[in-house]
């Protein structure tokens, strides 16, 4: 076997192998250097402290076992905050859906040929998207006070960013032959958007609105941690009292609700397709 593989090398003129290894070595060493730099506490990197796990293991194991024993008696007290969370998620997604329509049509090339307004909308949306959801909530709580309102506003801002970016990109990459026909017939851009582009692209919108709703359920569950209402506030409070049995009930509840919403929206999505 080895004889037959060795022979052709001698008989055939093998073209020289392209030299890819210096490039590859460069990339690998750059990645390695970056990773090392992220592990240096002196410059702000993360101190990988596996010892802490070993030291705190007993303590952690006790907490984990407490978490595995849900205190079901606590359940009735979670219902009201959970409802508030779902309400915030749903209302936030709905407001964001309404706002996203004009903004998306402004941010997509086929529905807004004006490069100035298009880039302006995109730039604003990108800046808003770069602020994480809970950071929005923190700032808004400081601005308008503790409660559901800052949570709702944070969800709306966050959703609008996602929907506008994803849908406008989807519109950009799709073909829109009807645009040329409508232009040839003397239509204004507004007429085209209102009667053709919006209904034609409605499935793209519906898809992302559902996605925003799913994300909202997940996010609104934790918004309360920074004081923005919903079940997160209860979660934070119980954590503060080390009431791990209660915390466990809340986490399980969030898990179930998220899974149910996700399943429901998957069914809806399949029906819409």
């Amino acid at each position: 076997m080895s004889g037959t593989t060795a022979e052709p090398a001698a008989r055939f003129e093998v073209p020289p192998r392209p030299r890819t290894w210096p490039r590859r070595a460069l990339i690998v060493s750059a990645l390695a250097a970056f990773t090392v730099a992220t592990c240096l506490p002196a410059i702000g990197g993360v101190e990988i402290d596996l010892g802490a796990i070993a030291r705190n293991w007993r303590h952690g194991a006790a907490n984990l076992s407490a978490l595995l024993q849900p205190n079901w008696a606590f359940f009735p007290r979670t219902v009201q905050p959970m409802l508030e969370t779902l309400q915030m998620a749903f209302v936030g997604a709905a407001i964001a859906a309404a706002l996203s329509v004009p903004l998306t049509l402004w941010a997509a090339r086929p529905t807004n040929p004006n490069i100035l307004t298009r880039s302006a909308v995109r730039a604003v949306v990108n800046v808003f998207r770069a602020v994480p959801d809970l950071v929005w909530a923190t700032i808004l709580v400081a601005m308008v006070g503790v409660g559901a309102l800052p949570g709702l506003l944070a969800l709306v801002l966050f959703n609008v960013g996602i929907v506008v970016k994803l849908v406008s990109e989807a519109i950009d990459s799709a073909e829109h032959p009807y645009l040329e026909a409508a232009r040839a017939g003397g239509a204004t851009q507004h007429q085209i958007n209102r009667t053709l582009a919006l209904p034609q692209n409605l499935p793209l919108f519906l898809n992302q609105w559902l996605y925003a709703l799913e994300l909202n359920v997940r996010i609104s569950a934790i918004l309360g941690i920074v004081g923005a209402g919903g079940i997160g506030r209860l979660l934070d409070e119980r954590f503060g009292f080390f009431a791990y049995g209660d915390v466990s009930v809340i986490i399980l509840e969030i898990l179930v609700v998220v899974l149910v919403i996700e399943a429901a929206s998957n069914i809806l999505r399949r029906r819409l397709a």
């Binding site: 032959p177 009807y178 040329e180 026909a181 409508a182 232009r183 040839a184 017939g185 003397g186 239509a187 204004t188 007429q191 085209i192 009667t195 053709l196 209904p199 034609q200 409605l202 499935p203």
Partner: peptide, 28 residues
């Protein structure tokens, strides 16, 4: 352009929209 009708190789209709509203585009 309102006085000049045009038809295309690819028909250029909005596919998800009914025939009625596609035709009304001519009245825009």
């Amino acid at each position: 352009r309102g006085h000049i009708g045009m038809i295309f190789q690819g028909f250029n209709l909005a596919t998800r929209i009914d025939v009625y509203r596609n035709t009304l585009v001519g009245r825009f």
